[in-house]
């Protein structure tokens, strides 16, 4: 005699699924990692010649153990840092204390054959011949500086350069820099990066404030 196969009761299925769901809900971490990416310089080569950089082209930012700022020799505030950095690079009025600039075409002539030269040529093609700043940022902190302050300064400097890039992108291509990245216009992004590089040089830290 054949018995009819009984159907499995599926009403507890929802409960099981709920249990699993709650487990995954609890273990899941939705935090997206974000941060400021930087490239560390290679260890100093003792035989390398000291690069010849005019003092006026260096934007010096010092942070002491008490989280106080010294911008270009003057005590400064974190709020003005971005504007000061921007002014330093742009130097619209040719102030002798702010950074010098040179024409892109001149820089191409001076640069030896190689990747860097190719980038500059690409930038000239896309952006036209324009003055580019020779300025670099020099950042030095104390061992006693808090990480919070250090990152704030890094953030402001990155913000300044980002704003300059954004301005150039709007001028040259009519859209914002972030939009260019989103649209994956790699050539244009690359050329803007070449013209306005993120050059933050970090000096070997000092230990003036003493270990805390």
């Amino acid at each position: 005699m054949k018995r009819q196969i009984q159907e499995i009761n599926a009403s507890s299925m929802a409960d099981i699924a709920f249990l699993l769901l709650i487990f995954f809900l609890v273990t899941t971490t939705m935090d997206v990692d974000s941060g400021i990416t930087r490239l560390l310089p290679p260890p100093p080569d003792p035989n390398a010649p000291i690069p010849d950089i005019n003092q006026r082209n260096v934007f010096v930012v010092l942070i002491n153990a008490g989280d106080q700022l010294l911008i270009e020799g003057k005590p400064g505030n974190i709020k003005e840092l971005r504007k000061l950095a921007k002014d330093f690079f742009e130097n619209p009025n040719g102030d002798p204390n702010l950074s010098e600039s040179e024409m892109l075409s001149d820089k191409i002539k001076k640069t030896p054959e190689g990747k860097q030269r190719d980038k500059l040529i690409l930038a000239e093609k896309l952006l036209g011949d324009r003055p580019i700043s020779k300025g670099i940022i020099s950042l030095q902190n104390d061992r006693g500086t808090s990480y919070k302050m250090y990152l704030k300064v890094q953030n402001e400097l990155a913000g300044a350069i980002d704003e300059l890039r954004d301005k150039l992108a709007k001028e040259a291509f009519g859209i914002s820099y972030n939009k260019l990245i989103e649209l994956k216009q790699d050539d244009k992004v690359e050329s803007i990066r070449t013209v306005i590089p993120m050059q933050i040089s970090e000096a070997e830290p000092k230990d003036i404030g003493g270990r805390k």
């Binding site: 990692d33 941060g35 400021i36 930087r38 953030n155």
Partner: peptide, 8 residues
Amino acid sequence: AFKINYSA
């Protein structure tokens, strides 16, 4: 290891 990211 030159590429670093300050988490923020």
